[in-house]
Amino acid sequence: APGAEDTVDLLTGELLPAAPAPPKAQRAASGAPSLFLEPAALMRCLDNPDVSVAAIAAHVLALLYSCPAIDASSGDAFVRWLLAALDGQSSTAGGGARPEARELVPVLSVLLRRVSMRHEVGSSGGVQLLCRLLQATSRESGNAPAAASPAAGAAARSLPQLLYELCFCLWTLSFQEELQPEFLTTGAIHTLTQTVQSAPVEKVQRVAIATFANLCVESPEWERPKYYREMHAAGLMKALTSLKDLKANQWKDADIEEDLDLVLDALAKNYQEISPGERSVAEVKSGTLAWGACHEQQFWKENVRCIEEDDFAVVRRLCTLLHSPDEEVIAIACYDIGEFCRFYPRGRDIAKHFGAKDAIMALIDSENPEIQRHALNSISKIMVNKWEGMSA
């Protein structure tokens, strides 16, 4: 890998021929700033085969576009590149390699300082992408083994900071009224609730709770019952109450207790009884499935009708989760689809329509024995007309 000086030389070589600075007298006459740096030239650096050059160019572009003096309308191409890189697309259209996601989350956090860029990121699926990254990082943080090498130890120690930066990005987006509904439709509230419960450091909890406070205060008053209902469905009130009892005024940051009390007070004043079916829908929307009462035969027998909402959106979401990177989520999705087919009239036809049969058939050859077992059971329920009396 090149050293810092080599990387700067490469970056300078990319920039200067493409965007030569005008003479000093010309800059003075035009009123241009003394530092002449064209975003278009930096955009070309994003396709550089050296990922160090691409990473530095991305950081500089984020700084430029976060500045009000720079025209934000030309930043849509950079936003597309950045979100594609964060989404795990390892190469650009020009064949260049992209930096890893953990290198680019700080870039996004800088870019989101500017309100117009928040809208650009949010309207391009940014909230949903950040939720997926937050779920994946939380899993990695929870499953991180003892470091076998200094490099592995450094990577493990960087996970809390990455969690913080992801939550910070969601927090900045939660200020925008037009983006707040995304926190309902993407399962962000459920994901952030789980983050609060499992966060390894206080600053992660602080920014996650601050995001909930924004949704309680910054959202239009007539829309707030929707957010309260989703928070109750995610179990946020119980999670925050337990956290408050555990910490008992031992917070290092006084602001966190203020936000925590604000959210708890809002939830207490707007308490809503949540049915098991509503809890299940909220969990599936979030994409963070875990074995429990919502994934048992009795639940599906009693609550299968709750899946009808929004043209069977839960079934469509379960089909998407069959491709999750989390193997437990895949196994649970297989089980739930099988139970839906078993108890819902024409459930088999609906599941087939959404592509469940083909996706589950492919999972029968999985190397994971749990996925294989649940895929076999599920495909049997999809294909057999009368399941009664057969082993689940």
Results as ranks from 00 to 15, higher is better:
3 G>M: 00
3 G>Y: 02
12 T>M: 14
14 E>V: 03
17 P>M: 08
21 A>V: 10
22 P>Q: 11
23 P>Y: 08
26 Q>C: 12
32 A>D: 15
32 A>Y: 10
32 A>N: 13
38 E>R: 09
47 D>S: 07
48 N>M: 04
48 N>I: 09
49 P>V: 01
50 D>N: 13
59 H>E: 15
60 V>A: 03
61 L>I: 06
61 L>K: 07
66 S>V: 02
67 C>I: 05
68 P>M: 06
74 S>Y: 12
77 A>M: 08
77 A>I: 07
78 F>G: 09
79 V>K: 11
80 R>W: 00
81 W>Y: 09
84 A>M: 13
85 A>T: 04
89 Q>G: 03
99 P>E: 11
104 L>T: 08
107 V>E: 14
111 L>G: 02
111 L>K: 02
113 R>Y: 12
114 R>V: 13
117 M>Y: 12
122 G>H: 00
131 C>N: 06
143 N>K: 01
146 A>Q: 04
146 A>Y: 07
149 S>C: 05
150 P>Q: 03
157 R>G: 08
165 E>W: 06
166 L>R: 07
168 F>K: 00
168 F>I: 08
170 L>P: 05
174 S>D: 12
175 F>M: 06
177 E>V: 01
181 P>T: 02
185 T>P: 03
189 I>P: 03
191 T>H: 02
194 Q>T: 04
195 T>F: 05
197 Q>Y: 11
197 Q>E: 15
197 Q>C: 13
198 S>R: 11
198 S>V: 12
200 P>S: 11
205 Q>C: 13
207 V>F: 06
207 V>C: 09
207 V>Q: 02
210 A>Y: 03
212 F>K: 01
215 L>G: 06
218 E>A: 06
220 P>H: 08
221 E>R: 09
225 P>W: 07
226 K>H: 15
229 R>W: 12
232 H>S: 04
233 A>Y: 05
233 A>F: 01
234 A>H: 01
234 A>I: 09
235 G>P: 11
240 L>H: 08
240 L>T: 08
246 L>Y: 14
249 N>S: 15
254 A>G: 05
256 I>M: 15
262 L>F: 01
263 V>M: 00
267 L>C: 03
269 K>H: 14
271 Y>P: 08
271 Y>C: 08
276 P>G: 03
279 R>P: 03
280 S>L: 00
287 G>P: 04
293 A>W: 08
295 H>G: 03
296 E>Q: 09
296 E>L: 05
301 K>N: 12
303 N>P: 04
308 E>M: 12
313 A>S: 14
313 A>R: 09
313 A>L: 04
314 V>E: 09
321 L>Y: 02
322 L>R: 09
329 V>P: 09
331 A>V: 08
340 F>A: 10
352 K>V: 13
355 G>V: 07
356 A>K: 06
359 A>K: 07
362 A>N: 10
364 I>Y: 12
366 S>M: 01
368 N>Y: 12
371 I>P: 05
376 L>W: 07
377 N>D: 15
381 K>F: 10
381 K>A: 13
392 A>T: 11
